[in-house]
Nucleic acid binder design. Sequence first.
DNA 1: CTCCAGGGGTTCC
DNA 2: GGAACCCATGGA
Length: 280
Amino acid sequence: MGPDKMAVQTNNPLTLGANGMNLEDTLFCGQSFSWKKVENNIFHGVAGKRALFAQQQQDTLLLWNSDGSQMDAQDIAFWNHYFALDLDYFLLKEKFSRSKRLQQCVQFAPGVRVLRQPFFDTLLCFIISQNNHIPRITSISQRLRQDFGPRLNGGEFAFPSAETLATLTTDDLGSLRAGFRAKYLIDAAQKVASGQVSEEEIAALPNDLAREKLTQIYGVGTKVADCVLLYSFGRNDIVPMDVWMKRAIEKQFRGKMPLAAKGYEGIAQQFIFCWAREHL
DNA sequence: CTCCAGGGGTTCC
DNA sequence: GGAACCCATGGA
């Protein structure tokens, strides 16, 4: 049973201050591929072993565990971290607005937030993302969860663990229709399962060494590594992404990130990305 | 039919 | 370092 067939729980939600976040813009701006809209203003998503219904009312987020269980303290900490609600985006956007061009991007999608998603899920999704487009990234990652991931209490499927995926072959992954990316997924799983690539180690490394570690995985280059460092580890100062440099920044920003974004280039890029998809 | 989608590996120079 | 070319797939 999938979330679209489940009764949406609407009693006793956890409420969090949205701090200016726009939930829908944030979930569907191309940084996460595990969410879908189930009703007009209700979204369902999976992150790690958690499945969630989420709704926004004005500047408040309403969150429900999709299996109907009560949110505990760990859940609350998890979702605060996930939605990056600890960051002062009002201050950031004010800084960004010192650049006229960047201000234009911020004003186009002021509610976009850079999420902090679980490490292995993020790694898998951005391996899938290479030379691919968002609808297909979403469908491949969904098949990866449903075909090989553990079933959660609410009926959804989480991403498979590295240990599970490491035992499979590219033939096993045929149902994903992931093409040449299948062998990359398996190598990532094997290197994470063996400990050659570990979340804890990467978390302790500076950007350049963390990137070097991630690119040891077959099929992970600087672009995918930077996406993982930004969208999972919240390395907001990570340097721009290759394809992005080619497509947008060199056209509109002449190859330079605005000085106003120093230290927060990753967040700035997310604003730029949203703007560029509509304007380029 | 062709072209492309938020790349990376390989193989040159 | 950088450029050319290949990689598999499905949608437009």
